[in-house]
């Protein structure tokens, strides 16, 4: 059996009432679900004996600019046991712009979520240390949001005196 089907089958048998959308583009397998189920699914994917997605490779967000629920969170997981990469996607609710942190499941998520917070301004609930990653703490904007200009906003970052 294909491993993609196996992942879906395992998830369906564990969470029968959950709605999962799957896409398969150029061999990249992706599962999309509602943000409320994020922690449950992540924990299951990591701890299930047959799946074992132990390595969280990457966490990022996409800004769709003009859509309702403008941010989508993207997680890339890798199963060392099965040599399989899985992508998870979930939309962030517009009203709160916040989502549960997965840093309790993978410790590597700590900094990756801080980066997303810095760049997109998405709040992570129950994050141990939510600070800016790259930009100075005094900086007010979130650079990777689509409305932020490439050359920045003049005066937002101070220069030392000559």
């Amino acid at each position: 059996m294909d491993f993609k089907e196996k992942v879906i089958q395992q998830l369906n048998s564990q969470f029968p009432e959950m709605k999962l959308e799957t896409t398969d583009f150029r061999g990249d397998f992706c599962i999309k679900f509602s943000p409320d189920n994020l922690l449950m699914i992540c924990e299951f994917l990591k701890n299930n004996d047959q799946l074992k997605f132990l390595l969280c490779e990457d966490i990022t967000a996409i800004d769709w600019a003009s859509r309702t629920n403008r941010f989508t969170m993207v997680y890339h997981l890798f199963s060392l046991k099965n040599k399989f990469r899985l992508r998870l996607k979930t939309d962030v609710d517009d009203s709160t712009t916040s989502i549960e942190s997965v840093s309790s499941i993978w410790r590597t998520a700590n900094w990756q979520e801080r980066e997303v917070y810095d760049m997109y301004g998405i709040n992570f609930l129950n994050h141990p240390d939510l600070r800016r990653m790259y930009m100075p703490e005094e900086f007010e904007y979130h650079p990777l949001r689509k409305e932020f200009p490439v050359m920045g906003i003049p005066g937002s970052l101070p220069l030392p005196k000559k």
């Binding site: 050359m151 970052l157 220069l159 005196k161």
Partner: peptide
């Protein structure tokens, strides 16, 4: 680097 975080020439402060 024409971007928001890069100083466009250090002669602005040195």
């Amino acid at each position: 680097y024409r971007s928001y975080s890069v100083v466009q020439g250090i002669d602005q402060f040195l």
